[in-house]
Each structure stands twice: as structure tokens, then as C-alpha cells.
């Protein structure tokens, strides 16, 4: 099951459509790595709303995707983790430390916009001595 990746402005949105095998998850990772360079994307959203299970492999892979994207200059937000999935993840002992999450796609986009705004403000600030 391939995950469609949409390009919107300078963001990539990977919208998971069905349960993913380990191989599918690794393919998603590789595809995002390719596209983030190709489109010079600054943000990546991975929508996991349809996933009814996030086990240790899925969480580990999402975490490594987020870290790789950061190294390529893009922020990653995982959106749509279902309440039951969050419950099972915590019991299993899984954490998404260092990875941004948001309730849904809308919140995810808002987060990335905020990040971009902050970056611009820092860049636009007058340098010392000017």
C-alpha cells in the first residue's frame, strides 16, 4: 500500500490510507527523503488518522523520519493519532520524544506556518550594530 504524498506550498503531506506493513513504512521514509530534496520542502505532515495500530516499529520509523527530515532542513508533524492508539502506545511504553504532533491536518499546517513565521522573524530582525 503506497502512501500518496501531496505537495502543498513548501510542505509535503503524506496521507496514510490503510494499514501499512513494515516495508510500506520504509518506502514512505525513502520517498519523503527524495521529495523533500526535490521540492526543497520546509515542512512535512504525516497523517496517521486511519492507523488503528501504531506498534514499536511504526513509532521507531516515524521518529527516524522526523529526525532525517530535520537534518534535511524540514520540520515534521505527525497528525491524527487516534485516542485508542495513544492509549495503547503509552501502555506499550512508546514515546515520540523530539517529534511534533498535532490533533489533525489543520492544526499540523498551523504549526508549520507558525514555525515558518518565527524563522522569518529571526531572519528579518536587525543585526547587532546595524
Amino acid at each position: 500500500m503506497q502512501v500518496p504524498i501531496l505537495k502543498q506550498r513548501d510542505y509535503l503531506i503524506a496521507s496514510i490510507q490503510a494499514a501499512l506493513t513494515d516495508a510500506d513504512l520504509l518506502e514512505l521514509r525513502d520517498e519523503l527523503m527524495k521529495q523533500v530534496g526535490k521540492f526543497r520542502s520546509r515542512g512535512v505532515i504525516i497523517d496517521v488518522t486511519v492507523l488503528d495500530v501504531m506498534d514499536s516499529f511504526a513509532v521507531r520509523t516515524l521518529r527516524s523520519i522526523a529526525h532525517m527530515m530535520k537534518l534535511r532542513g524540514a520540520d515534521t508533524v505527525i497528525v491524527g493519532i487516534q485516542p485508542e492508539v495513544a492509549f495503547a502506545m503509552v501502555q506499550l511504553g512508546l514515546t515520540l520524544t523530539g517529534v511534533e504532533t498535532a490533533l489533525d491536518l489543520e492544526e499540523g499546517l498551523a504549526f508549520l506556518d507558525d514555525q515558518r513565521l518565527k524563522e522569518r522573524q529571526v531572519k528579518g530582525a536587525p543585526k547587532r550594530g546595524e
Binding site: A19, D22, A23, D52, P83, F87, Q91, L92
Partner: peptide, 30 residues
Amino acid sequence: DQDIVIARQQGRTLASKLGFNGSDLTVIAT
């Protein structure tokens, strides 16, 4: 790895028939 997905889907289906609720279904599948 495909069988892992099949196993947890079958587990969820059977657990649902047995009367487990939503969060328990996810816990069992996980």
C-alpha cells in the same frame, strides 16, 4: 511483515466478536 498486519487485523476482528471495546481492541491488536 505482511503477516504481522494480517495477524493484528484478524485479532481485532475476533476480539470484536467476543465483545471487547474500542481501546481494548487496539491494545490487543498492538
